[in-house]
Simulated scan of single mutants.
Amino acid sequence: MAGNAPKAVLQGGPEGLPERIVPVDPPGAELKIPYRGGYEHFRATKREWDTAEGRLPVYEWWERTELPG
């Protein structure tokens, strides 16, 4: 993960995701997070949350795709 990339807060999706604050590059792009044999997809919202790392945009879960096999 890039140290200087902008970050976002993930909302929704599986409770077991290891990180809820993640880099997002480029900002506004859809995020695809690998998790347990598939991908969790998150989309940018217009909301922001105050976090220990500052005010960050909120990305909301909208679907999961499974990897073949």
Rank of each mutant, 00 (worst) to 15 (best):
M1N: 01
M1W: 04
M1P: 00
A2M: 04
A2D: 02
G3F: 04
G3N: 10
G3I: 06
G3A: 15
N4M: 03
N4E: 13
N4F: 00
A5C: 11
A5M: 02
P6M: 08
P6W: 10
K7G: 00
K7L: 03
K7D: 07
A8W: 03
A8V: 15
A8Q: 01
V9M: 07
Q11F: 09
Q11R: 15
Q11L: 14
G12N: 13
G12A: 11
G12W: 10
G12K: 07
G12I: 12
G13C: 04
G13M: 06
G13P: 11
P14C: 09
E15Y: 02
E15K: 10
L17Q: 04
L17P: 01
L17S: 08
L17A: 07
P18Y: 13
P18W: 01
P18C: 02
P18E: 12
P18S: 14
E19Q: 12
I21K: 04
V22S: 05
V22G: 09
P23A: 08
P23V: 11
P23G: 01
P23K: 09
P23R: 13
V24T: 07
V24P: 03
V24D: 01
D25E: 15
D25Y: 03
P26S: 14
P27Y: 07
P27W: 01
G28Q: 09
G28N: 06
G28E: 07
A29P: 00
A29M: 06
A29D: 10
L31R: 12
K32A: 15
K32W: 06
K32E: 13
I33R: 06
I33P: 01
I33M: 14
I33L: 10
P34E: 14
Y35H: 15
Y35C: 02
Y35L: 11
R36V: 11
R36P: 00
G37D: 10
G37H: 04
G37F: 12
G37Q: 12
G37M: 15
G38E: 11
G38Y: 05
G38D: 11
G38T: 06
Y39M: 08
Y39W: 12
Y39H: 12
E40S: 08
E40A: 14
H41S: 06
H41K: 05
H41P: 01
F42V: 08
R43V: 10
R43C: 05
R43T: 12
A44T: 07
A44D: 04
A44R: 14
A44I: 02
T45S: 15
T45P: 01
R47E: 15
R47G: 00
R47M: 07
E48A: 02
T51F: 05
T51W: 08
T51G: 05
T51C: 05
A52W: 00
A52Q: 13
A52D: 12
A52I: 00
E53A: 05
E53L: 10
G54S: 07
G54C: 10
G54K: 07
G54V: 08
G54W: 13
R55D: 04
R55G: 08
L56Y: 08
L56G: 03
L56E: 10
P57W: 13
P57Q: 11
P57V: 13
Y59H: 14
E60L: 15
E60K: 15
W61P: 14
W61R: 09
W61A: 14
W62H: 14
R64G: 12
T65P: 09
T65D: 05
E66G: 00
E66C: 02
L67G: 00
L67W: 01
L67R: 14
L67C: 00
P68K: 05
P68D: 07
P68M: 08
G69T: 01
G69E: 06
G69Y: 08
G69N: 02
